[in-house]
């Protein structure tokens, strides 16, 4: 159980690194507005919220 949680932490960490860096980030780095909000802004803040949520889940005693 502890091992699994450890692995999940590292997976989240590594995917975070990949998702916010070039080249992957350039997929969303376009001058497009989604409901008036820039695509990149949406992407970064959604990703951010997602990482916070994952960390929150991982911080729970029960997984």
């Amino acid at each position: 159980m502890i091992q699994k949680r450890r692995e999940l932490r590292i997976v989240t960490f590594v995917s975070g690194i990949l998702l916010v860096n070039f080249p992957l980030i350039s997929v969303f780095n376009k001058p497009v507005l989604v409901f008036g909000i820039p695509l990149l802004f949406c992407y970064i803040f959604f990703l951010w919220a997602f990482i916070i949520f994952m960390t929150y889940r991982l911080s729970k005693k029960q997984l």
């Binding site: 960490f13 975070g16 970064i44 951010w48 916070i52 994952m54 960390t55």
Partner: peptide, 20 residues
Amino acid sequence: GLGFVAVYLGPTIMAPIWYM
């Protein structure tokens, strides 16, 4: 533009392994 955000994303990416 969004270049400023890297300073706050860095700690966020670290967050999952922060506990370790």
